[in-house]
Write a protein that binds this DNA or RNA. Structure first.
Lengths: 154, 154
DNA sequence: TATTGTTATACTCTATAACTATA
DNA sequence: TATAGTTATAGAGTATAACAATA
């Protein structure tokens, strides 16, 4: 499994990470952490302090009337951990809870005009980040990267 | 920014995730979470319960004599959070601390014969996971995916 | 004075159990 | 009986501050 012979030198000058770099999980995680780090820095001005905050707000804007259950299912998060996120967005006046038309147990989540306005800016910033963070990738490479990632997890 | 017109229908049947799927951070994170989930399931037999556990053990095997400081730098983790990991590997008899040849403050981390034996199996399992988890990708696509991911974060 | 390794500790994120209201 | 939403709480992961030993 080792890619090169090691000497018995007890000190390491250059760290060999070649094995880890063969793993999809390792590369995907490192990429996600690096990109999200910059992402969250830029989202501070919009008062989003976690990727879930942003993702939930975005999904509500693009899916007015979506339920908590649907958000949990799509984003792979657990219902108890969504409650605070939705409450936060509601308290900020970005979304609104309304009775669900077909299910008395559920609540439909809808964006407010303020929410729509803020998310338009936030999503524009997110789109700009894509260009900046993947500056070493061509437009075609970016597209390929998305397609291959989605082929794995979707 | 919206990719399609929304009706005023208050209930959502199919959730539109098209915007989030244009984001590298979103796709990379979803992929990492999905792959690591399967990874950790298979690593239970080797008693690795986090990706950091495995990564640290792997780096020590491939870089005998590496220091804690170097591990932190390469993996992007903080020194206080590495202490428990190294202690755990040492208690399991997989690695050994030895005085560093050039720096009296540091300790060189070395794999034991048991550590080498276990990591050979664990890394073989990890390599097999790559084939399984990316079954919808060709060998060429896998290689391309790694290259593009590393182009972003490296 | 700066760095390695460490302890203690706080904060965030994620997971489980149990409850209510409705299907 | 099952599901949507919620509360309380436990656990894992990640962060900062401060210290001893050595550079």
């Amino acid at each position: 499994m080792a890619t090169q012979q090691k000497t018995s030198d007890p000190s390491v000058d250059r760290v060999d990470t070649s094995f880890l770099e063969t793993l999809i999980g390792y590369n995907a995680r490192r990429t996600a952490l690096a990109v999200i780090d910059v992402f969250l820095q830029r989202m501070v001005v919009h008062d989003f302090h976690s990727v879930v905050d942003f993702s939930v707000a975005s999904l509500i804007v693009h899916n007015p009337g979506i339920t908590s259950r649907q958000l949990c299912s799509v984003l792979g998060i657990l219902p108890p951990n969504l409650v605070g996120v939705v409450n936060g967005l509601e308290k900020r006046g970005l979304i609104q809870r309304r009775p669900h038309p077909n299910d008395g147990r559920a609540m439909g989540l809808h964006p407010t005009p303020e929410g729509l306005k803020l998310m338009e800016q936030a999503e524009n910033d997110a789109a700009q980040l894509e260009v900046d963070v993947a500056s070493r990738l061509t437009a075609t490479e970016r597209k390929t990267l998305m397609r291959l990632l989605q082929k794995v997890y979707l």
